[in-house]
Design a binder for these strands. Structure first.
Lengths: 110, 110
DNA sequence: TCAGTAGTACGACGGGCATCGTACCACATG
DNA sequence: CATGTGGTACGATGCCCGTCGTACTACTGA
């Protein structure tokens, strides 16, 4: 079974903003923006249980923010930058800029 | 008693995104962006009751998105564009652009 | 085969939120 | 004083959401 991803044209602003209004999910997107390397759900330092993690990644995927590629027992997550930029030009950049000003990921664990 | 408005520096991204993730509130902000004239809470065509209206305007105010000036029995609402732009450059513009693409206010009642 | 890893599915819990109705206040106007 | 207008406060309701635990599947490797 393949995972459902909305098409770029179908992305809804409400869903995107809601997805990013949660600190944990904003963290994930921030991290993926800093380092675009696709990586596992568990590879994000989030301090929540696995089931909660699954939930957050699902919200992000269904909002169209990330792409999840099934790879063995893992799912490789990547940011849908191009689709986001195509649908909502400048939105992701503005949010990421605001987020990095707010609580920079690079110094979050320092 | 004066209404509490957060300072520009204190604006939190989570709160802003959450405030704008609600369709009704996004509508209000959209409307204020299209026509910056400060106006009453009741002057927005929202199809919700007065108490719900009060709630939404409070959320917007406490997130720092709007300013409410007490004027007699009314509150004049205006968009805090400058403060938003100062704190989160480009964010409001990007969201408004995305929103107008999504569901243009000017054609909402047409 | 046994153990470990990566993740899902389901159910539950608690809190928050959008919405409403009712009651109430402040001001203007007749 | 009575009425209308603009808005708040409070309580209730129903739903959604973030979080967790438990049980489960699928793959990997000793």
């Amino acid at each position: 079974m393949t995972l459902h991803h909305p098409q770029a044209v179908q992305l809804e602003l409400d869903a995107v903003l809601h997805a990013l209004s949660d600190p944990q999910r904003l963290r994930i997107v921030q991290s993926l923006a800093e380092d675009p390397t696709p990586r596992r759900c568990g590879a994000f330092d989030l301090h929540v249980t696995k089931s909660t993690l699954t939930h957050h990644f699902r919200v992000l995927r269904e909002a169209g923010l990330i792409h999840q590629l099934e790879e063995g027992t893992s799912r490789l997550n990547s940011l849908r930058r191009d689709d986001l930029d195509e649908r909502f030009p400048g939105l992701l950049d503005a949010i990421l800029a605001a987020a990095s000003d707010h609580a920079p990921l690079s110094s979050a664990h320092g």
